[in-house]
């Protein structure tokens, strides 16, 4: 058995790519993250009113997961309790943290909003994914200054080798006032590895940095 990357999705610069192929591009002009996420949600065509309650980080992750998870068919192959989630980013829940901080800066005008505060934990994004896709396995959220392919690879390998998961949905999801990016990928054990992308730090680094260099079956 070999660990292979069976699917990946990237969202950046108003584009959504699945397995290296462009699946959605928002009309240029409005680069606002909220505007883009709403547009993407509508294009995805799913009915999920909870989406609107989420903060931008959770919405971004939702859009990437919604693009990748259903089409991958992973939930048909693997028990929901055997799929682990391993995520990381640099700035935690910065947008919600700032929004909450705004409400508590002035002791005389002090109205913290629970609907904002609940998103001041980066792992809520993962919790939202668990609810949406009914995943009940192990979940991890890490912080690091950049996407750490070695740490991701090592810990994901641990999860699978130690029997904590049969498959892992992993990624880097970051959103702040200057921009946003989501990189999600899925690792499973496979009997055949020919033509499939091996799960190595090198593959992760390549996929994270390049949106189009690797596609299945044919290399551009």
């Amino acid at each position: 058995m070999a660990q292979v990357i069976t699917s990946y999705c990237k969202i950046k610069d108003q584009q959504v790519l699945l397995n290296g192929e462009l699946v959605l591009a928002a009309p240029s002009g409005n680069a606002d993250i909220h505007h883009f996420l709403r547009y993407t949600y509508e294009q995805l065509g799913c009915e999920y009113p909870r989406f609107f309650k989420m903060d931008a980080l959770s919405k971004l992750c939702f859009c990437a997961a919604e693009t990748m998870i259903p089409q991958s068919g992973i939930v048909n192959r693997t028990d929901a309790g055997d799929i682990a989630l391993l995520f990381s980013n640099r700035q935690s829940s910065i947008l919600s943290d700032k929004a909450h901080q705004e409400t508590i800066n002035d002791p005389w005008n002090f109205f913290p909003n629970p609907a904002v505060f609940v998103y001041t934990l980066p792992n809520i994004m993962v919790g939202e994914m668990c609810i949406r896709h009914q995943l009940t396995g192990d979940t991890t959220f890490l912080l690091s200054e950049g996407f750490d392919a070695d740490m991701h690879h090592r810990y994901l390998d641990c999860l699978m080798q130690q029997g904590a998961a049969q498959a892992v949905i992993s990624g880097w999801v970051e959103a702040d006032e200057n921009g946003y990016e989501a990189f999600l990928y899925m690792v499973e054990d496979s009997m055949v590895s020919a033509g499939l992308l091996p799960h190595t730090p090198g593959s992760l680094t390549a996929l994270y940095h390049n949106s189009k260099i690797l596609t299945y079956g044919n290399v551009d």
Partner: peptide, 12 residues
């Protein structure tokens, strides 16, 4: 969570 946010809204 919205119920709690409504409580906050009434106060604010």
């Amino acid at each position: 969570i919205d119920a709690l946010a409504l409580v906050m809204l009434l106060e604010k």
